Simulated assay, not measured.
Amino acid sequence: MQSYLELARDGKKEMWEAVQLEMDRRKTFAEKYNISKLDYATVDNPFDGRVICGHCGSNFGRKVWNSNNERLRRIIWRCNKKYTVKGEKSCENKHVDDTVLYKAFVSVFNEMVENKEYFMEKWKVGLQSENFLIRYKTKQFIKILKNAKVLEEFDIDLFFRIIEKITVFEGEKIIVTLLDGIEIECEIE
Score class of each variant (00 low, 15 high):
Ile76Ala: 11
Phe154Ser: 09
Thr167Tyr: 04
Tyr33Cys: 00
Ile163Arg: 13
Val106Ser: 13
Glu183Ser: 08
Met23Phe: 01
Cys91Ser: 06
Asp48Ser: 07
Leu151Pro: 04
Cys186Ala: 09
Ile76Asp: 11
Ala8Asp: 08
Phe29Trp: 00
Lys12Trp: 05
Gly49Ala: 02
Glu153Ile: 10
Glu70Asp: 01
Arg50Thr: 15
Ser3Phe: 06
Leu151Arg: 13
Glu88Pro: 13
Gly54Ala: 10
Phe169Ala: 13
Val100Ala: 11
Gly49Leu: 02
Lys116Met: 09
Glu6Ile: 15
Thr167Ser: 06
Thr138Phe: 10
Asn45Glu: 13
Val150Thr: 15
Phe109Tyr: 10
Arg161Met: 06
Lys94Gln: 14
Lys116Ile: 12
Tyr102Phe: 02
Ile182Glu: 11
Gln20Thr: 09
Met112Pro: 08
Ala8Met: 07
Gly61Asn: 13
Glu88Cys: 14
Val168Asp: 12
Gly181Met: 07
Lys82Ser: 05
Val113Phe: 13
Tyr83Thr: 14
Phe169Ile: 10
Arg26Leu: 14
Arg135Asn: 10
Asn131Phe: 09
Ile52Val: 07
Ile142Phe: 12
Phe109Pro: 06
Pro46Met: 04
Thr167Asn: 08
Gln20His: 15
Met112Ile: 15
Ser67Leu: 00
Asn131Met: 07
Arg25Tyr: 01
Trp65Arg: 11
Arg62Tyr: 01
Glu111Met: 09
Trp77Thr: 02
Lys146Thr: 03
Glu164Met: 02
Arg74Asn: 01
Cys53Gly: 07
Ala30Gln: 03
Glu170Trp: 02
Ile35Asn: 00
Arg161His: 12
